[in-house]
Design a binder for these strands. Structure first.
Lengths: 241, 241
DNA sequence: CGCCAACCGGAACGCATCGTCCACTTCCGG
DNA sequence: CCGGAAGTGGACGATGCGTTCCGGTTGGCG
């Protein structure tokens, strides 16, 4: 858990970094973290460089692509997320654990504007983040099964519905960055209330084709039975052909 | 309602349009509608012009600003939304009406990618759309009060929570444009289940400062009473600090 | 039919961001 | 202390989008 990545090279390894290089690298990651959290992952690369007090070239040498930078910036936070979910999963009451885990993920998403994007966008080129995220989903999937077995979570709940929660929450964060925390909590409250097994409203069936896969969110590690049908396809980013 | 706007000039009136100009105008609006629905309101202006088979200049002459174009493109759809919500509000069972209305709004949002954005972004410069949206909220607010009076909607539900639904749903649409319809339906199902008065989970209090206002969503017409008062206290579960 | 103002399309300009290149600077092992 | 490889910063070209300008075209009235 949370192994320190800061000693590793971002790209192909040519030996350890020089002392000043190392320091600059850290300042870049730190600045990126702050900016991504405050303004989302779309801040210009040049802005990150300026806030870090370095030139663009320095940033580009260390992180050849924008995604590499995002990956490093969120590695720590992702690890924290995994840990939090694992801790929640240890709760003897599976429903309580489930609720805590869902709440924790959403809270992290609403505190850090970039986190949700990184979580969803999946950074398909970044196996490390994807793997971490799949672990989160796997743990959550286990929690789901246990909560269902205990009779507290409605039986028609699926892993896809967790993706639903994350996406819905990201909508809150995107639309109202200021009040996101409070609004997100309330949304989660309503949703959890709807997830209880004793809820009376029947709901439309789960997505057939598999929402997670459709988003490229289905990694190799995600809870065996629930997913996996068609080969993962590359999701498109909003750009013109 | 839904007065036909297509005969009016977009900008300052210099008399009626020439026949070819009029035809081009219509083709532009039509193309914009299709593209906004499919790809969101952020499609490049040039793309709209190309799909309409006209030059960029033509588009700009008719619609000096992007928002003017958006307004025209969505005017019809907004009217349809208002009508649908009004129809739902006529349901003798207020809960049924509430559920139908919420479902309808979310469905329109998931079928048409731009609709949600237009609805939320509020187009503050466009009094017409804003007014239409406020009407929707006003009708919904009335529905909320009636459903609460009937005891079917939980008493701590506020108008802000409707904004929450819209924002959450927009998150779904943004993240999964393909399966948005189904996913959205499911989300709404869960949420409605959570909105029932007999739901057992207490949820965090509604946003204090007023989410609607914070977003600039609170127009002059929005149902006075429900908006400002913060929700009655609900005890918080001992989960997150 | 013929004119002219309104109209048209596309080229041109401005701006922001991405990612690369190069001439100068700095660390550090011998 | 010194040489050179690693490192640095800023200038630079490429790309994509928004907006304006201009020479040619056309609808419709007299």
């Amino acid at each position: 858990m949370a192994r320190d990545l800061s000693h590793q090279r971002g790209d192909d390894d040519h030996g350890p970094l020089r002392s000043d290089a190392r320091q600059n690298r850290d300042r870049i990651v730190e600045a990126a973290r702050r900016l991504f959290a405050a303004r989302g992952v779309d801040v210009p690369v040049a802005t990150v460089a300026r806030h870090a007090g370095v030139g663009v070239a320095t940033l580009y040498r260390r992180f050849p692509t924008r995604e590499a930078l995002v990956e490093q910036a969120f590695a720590e936070e992702f690890a924290a997320c995994t840990a939090a979910v694992r801790r929640a999963a240890a709760d003897p009451d599976p429903w309580q654990g489930f609720a805590t885990a869902v709440g924790k993920v959403c809270e992290m998403q609403s505190v850090d504007r970039g986190f949700g994007a990184a979580f969803l966008a999946a950074l398909p080129q970044s196996p490390h983040l994807a793997q971490e995220r799949d672990q989160v989903f796997a743990v959550l999937g286990d929690l789901v099964r246990r909560a269902q077995a205990a009779g507290s979570l409605r039986p028609d709940f699926t892993l896809d519905d967790l993706a639903l929660v994350v996406m819905a929450n990201s909508g809150i964060v995107a639309a109202a960055p200021e009040g996101a925390r409070r609004a997100s909590r309330r949304l989660v409250g309503y949703l959890l209330s709807g997830f209880r097994a004793d809820g009376l409203e029947p709901i439309p069936p789960a997505a057939g084709p598999g929402l997670l896969e459709e988003l490229g969110l289905a990694g190799p590690g995600v809870g065996a039975g629930t997913l996996r049908r068609s080969a993962p396809r590359a999701p498109r980013r909003p750009s013109s052909p």
